[in-house]
């Protein structure tokens, strides 16, 4: 009974199934926020699985997802900007929730891997994921308000 795998399956059930439900239904604005949240959930699941199976090599999966996940959401925000009708009220709450969920997972896997470069790598993945998530969700919420309000260079 591996605690990591239990957490991974709980996070999978609590995170991925609502994401699938949110992405398949509702207005476009809700769907893109759900997809953005889905990236974070799966990246955290990858970190937990890397610990659960005692294979540090699996953190590369979380690394690539932390790098490319938010880019995928930015692609949606950029190419569907015309149709992003209205942003869900719970948009900010979901982003705050996922970023808040990132912290314990990263801290727990750092504690498990012990001090060293592997821990720094996990922290780097966590920071990358949180930053990407925040930027993507701000872009999505920014897309609804008139563009002049968001700062342009």
């Amino acid at each position: 009974m591996n605690a990591w795998l239990v957490c991974a399956s709980l996070l999978l059930v609590a995170g991925l199934l609502p994401v699938v439900w949110g992405t398949a239904r509702g207005p476009l604005g809700h769907r893109v926020v759900a997809q953005n949240c889905g990236t974070s959930v799966v990246c955290l699941v990858m970190l937990l699985l890397a610990q659960g199976y005692e294979r540090p090599a699996y953190t590369d999966l979380a690394l690539v997802l932390a790098v490319l996940g938010p880019v995928g959401t930015l692609v949606f925000a950029r190419l569907l900007s015309g149709e992003l009708d209205e942003e869900p009220r719970w948009g900010r709450a979901v982003t705050a929730l996922t970023v808040a969920a990132t912290a314990p997972v990263v801290i727990a896997s750092c504690a498990a891997t012990g001090p060293g470069r592997a821990a720094v790598k996990v922290v780097f993945i966590g920071v990358l994921l949180a930053a990407g998530n925040v930027i993507a969700s701000r872009t999505l919420s920014g897309a609804h308000r008139n563009p002049t309000e968001t700062r342009y260079d």
């Binding site: 540090p56 690394l63 470069r117 592997a118 720094v120 790598k121 780097f124």
Partner: peptide, 8 residues
């Protein structure tokens, strides 16, 4: 430095 962090 990032590369050093990534490699095992």
């Amino acid at each position: 430095v990032l590369w050093l962090v990534l490699i095992s």
